[in-house]
């Protein structure tokens, strides 16, 4: 590639290295694999740099490549399937069809001070145990600050699906972190209050139908 394109790639795409590496770490849960994944993604991005549309989000473009590279090269190995299945099994416990409206248990109102007492390592471990699609959506939304539209582009799905994945991912994370806080004695255990919530629960189908396209 000529020097101008190289310069442009280095000044536009390479500054996203930390972001891509962070996401790769959360996806692979392994620093060596994360490095390989990011390197592969960058090589692909460089080879196809001429196809990047100027004026569009380079971050969304790179994350798309990262995700596709991950799926192509790493996902087939079916690593960590057990952990994923285990957590997926917890979803029904979070609400009917992972109801979108309300928590089905009265977890005390989240507290900023509590977040400060949970270590970064614990937060990342919790994030890594969330099912992959939810995890990716939460990473892109909350760690990388991408808009719904960009996440939909990266994950190749409708915006309604993006919202639902972020929602479920965050609910799982909240549950995991809250459980952890309870273990440490930092928070009160949740008390079930299904009756009060049942009248106010909005089901996922309603949510999807009303979701912004």
């Amino acid at each position: 590639m000529n020097p101008t394109a190289r310069h442009e790639f280095e000044s536009t795409a390479l500054p996203q290295l930390d972001a891509l590496y962070g996401a790769a770490l959360r996806l692979t849960r392994n620093s060596a694999e994360a490095e390989d994944l990011v390197q592969d993604a960058y090589v692909r991005a460089y080879r196809f740099w001429h196809t990047f549309k100027s004026g569009t989000s380079v971050r969304a473009w790179l994350f798309t490549i990262l995700r596709n590279t991950f799926i192509n090269r790493y996902h087939r190995a079916n690593r960590n399937r057990a952990a994923r299945t285990d957590l997926e099994a917890q979803l029904p416990a979070l609400g009917p069809e992972a109801a979108v409206g309300h928590p089905n248990s009265r977890v005390p109102a989240p507290d900023a001070a509590l977040a400060a007492r949970i270590t970064r390592e614990r937060i990342m471990t919790a994030l890594e145990s969330v099912p992959e699609d939810y995890r990716m959506a939460v990473i892109l939304a909350d760690l990388e600050g991408l808009a719904y539209k960009e996440i939909a582009e990266v994950m190749d799905c409708p915006i309604g699906t993006v919202m639902s994945r972020i929602y479920r991912g965050r609910r799982l994370l909240h549950k995991l972190l809250h459980d952890h806080a309870v273990e440490l004695g930092l928070a009160e255990p949740a008390s079930d209050d299904d009756e009060a919530v049942a009248t106010n629960t909005v089901h996922i189908e309603d949510y999807r139908q009303r979701g912004r396209a």
Binding site: P103, V107, P110, D111, A115, R170, R171, H174
Partner: peptide, 8 residues
């Protein structure tokens, strides 16, 4: 709850 996770 969603805000808390997001902010965290």
């Amino acid at each position: 709850e969603q805000h808390w996770v997001r902010a965290t």
